[in-house]
Design a protein around this nucleic acid. Structure first.
Lengths: 114, 114
DNA sequence: TTATTTATTCTACATTGTATAATTAATCAT
DNA sequence: ATGATTAATTATACAATGTAGAATAAATAA
């Protein structure tokens, strides 16, 4: 409203985090795996790539093609890394959630406190 | 993919949290204000209502109309509260984010560590 | 030179995010 | 009682994000 700011989508947030954790080895397939392994969320590989493309278009990540002659079959990998802008968005998103959650975790869990 | 599970959207998540914090006084206008005050995000009131409607349709919140004759001008309020299903989704979403963030907060902040 | 493998790109559609305009319903002044 | 004011919700529309599946590409292995 006020400013046309744009926020990180829920899945974008997750993809960004997977990518950071993977470091040098972050590319489509590993990102997908990382998400699946960590939180048991199995998304299609297409979903991952689409999100990756959008994040890059927004300047939150950048990519570079892998080595020309890898020691195995298959097309070359496209590696991704987060940009400073990406890190900012991430911290921003985290901060907001933190503030929104602040203080209301225990109460809402059980409900039977006294 | 595997199961057609549905996740809480980023804004849905925020609306749900605002609603919980407001307790008995959670309705369109106050929810909007709460979000603005807490995290400085000013969304239109329409955005809030649309999200509220969708959350209700999904069974994550429920509503009831306010008193018939309030002591002031204007239409009756519609109060919202979260359902157990809503709480579950919320905890689920929080848990996933927690796991994804686990361990990589300090490193990604500065970058100038050595 | 065709299969197999590994990976990315394209395409399409569903869901969620968001704003503005329209409507409803109550009080307040005249 | 009637129009202005106020407080709130509903309707409508469109942009952005989530997601899957098919198509394509490019390398190695047989």
């Amino acid at each position: 409203m006020g400013n046309k700011e744009t926020y990180l989508g829920e899945f974008e947030h997750i993809v960004l985090l997977a990518l950071i954790r993977l470091g040098k080895d972050a590319y489509g397939m590993t990102i997908r795996m990382e998400i699946d392994e960590r939180i048991g969320r199995s998304v299609s590989i297409g979903a991952v790539y689409t999100t990756l493309e959008r994040l890059e278009k927004k300047g939150l990540i950048l990519s570079q093609m892998g080595e020309a002659t890898p020691q195995r079959g298959g097309k070359a990998k496209k590696y991704f890394e987060i940009t400073p802008a990406g890190k900012e968005k991430l911290q921003e998103a985290r901060k907001s959630m933190e503030i929104m959650w602040q203080g209301l975790n225990p109460e809402m869990l059980g409900g039977a406190c006294a």
